[in-house]
Design a protein around this nucleic acid. Structure first.
Lengths: 136, 136
DNA sequence: GCTACCGCTTGTGTTTTGCAAGTAGTTAAA
DNA sequence: TTTAACTACTTGCAAAACACAAGCGGTAGC
């Protein structure tokens, strides 16, 4: 770790381009399987996906489990530590909507609509949903 | 740009380890000069600092100006677009304080104290201060 | 028993990073 | 007025990370 600054701690752990997109996929797009992450618009390379999933699991931001139905499949889900990244994800999204210089996908406005009205309330509402969706 | 997702937009622009630390230094530690950024605990390399400052200026997150007193010096400051990154920085800090597995610098708690009490109010209060400090 | 699918791993070339050294212009002191 | 120090960088190079393609061992269905 480069320093003991609280900001630096989070930055070093999850602030790379791919980790945050994986967390986004888990939070908002219902993705749970390796192949689903591979299929996202940003086209992560398979070796990098494997690397990031292992790192996020090691940091206890996500967890792995075998799928009950299909035994060859592995289900990824967010831990409480991972769900707590919601405010970070939402504030990045709100900043982007305000300041983007390219045209953004309007279908994804829905992700931010709760947070746009009232940040703290939006965080609480979506957190509740995520806890329900990602509890073991 | 890898996709038109609003989350991806912000992530691609400022989510690298050094850019966010430079923004932190501008927001909370009163740093304004090249040498001051070089002196931070995390020890950014000088070529990377030059690269990131140029990128952040191009993205209009920071601005450059000659120092009025010392003509050889260049003052960096946050634009409105840069100040609007405050919620991102604060939520990363709050997450780190809650979940860090290493011992963090207690002297830096002060940065997060306003946000800890009430996130939205803390954002407003610190934003006001930053606007005062970084207006041309 | 063949074929397809699943979550990866491996190999290779390119890009980015990290470190050290150097540079052009400016200021301060001798 | 020369000189030394300071400023914001630039350059060179080795090591690490990334991006792309191909391959691989273990299910699962037919």
């Amino acid at each position: 770790m480069r320093s003991d600054c609280p900001l630096n701690y989070g930055i070093e752990i999850f602030c790379d381009k791919w980790s945050l997109l994986i967390i986004r996929d888990l939070m908002f797009f219902g993705k749970r399987y390796y192949n689903e992450f591979l299929g996202s618009d940003e086209h992560i390379a398979t070796n990098l996906l494997a690397d990031r999933l292992a790192m996020l699991e090691k940091e206890k931001i996500i967890r792995k489990a075998r799928d009950a139905q299909h035994k060859q499949k592995i289900v990824y889900s967010l831990t409480e530590k991972g769900i707590d990244l919601l405010p970070v994800i939402l504030t990045i999204g709100l900043w982007s909507e305000k300041h983007a210089t390219i045209e953004l996908n309007p279908n994804r406005d829905i992700i931010l609509s709760d947070a746009k009205k009232n940040l703290s309330k939006g965080i609480k509402k979506i957190t509740k949903r995520l806890i329900a969706q990602h509890s073991k």
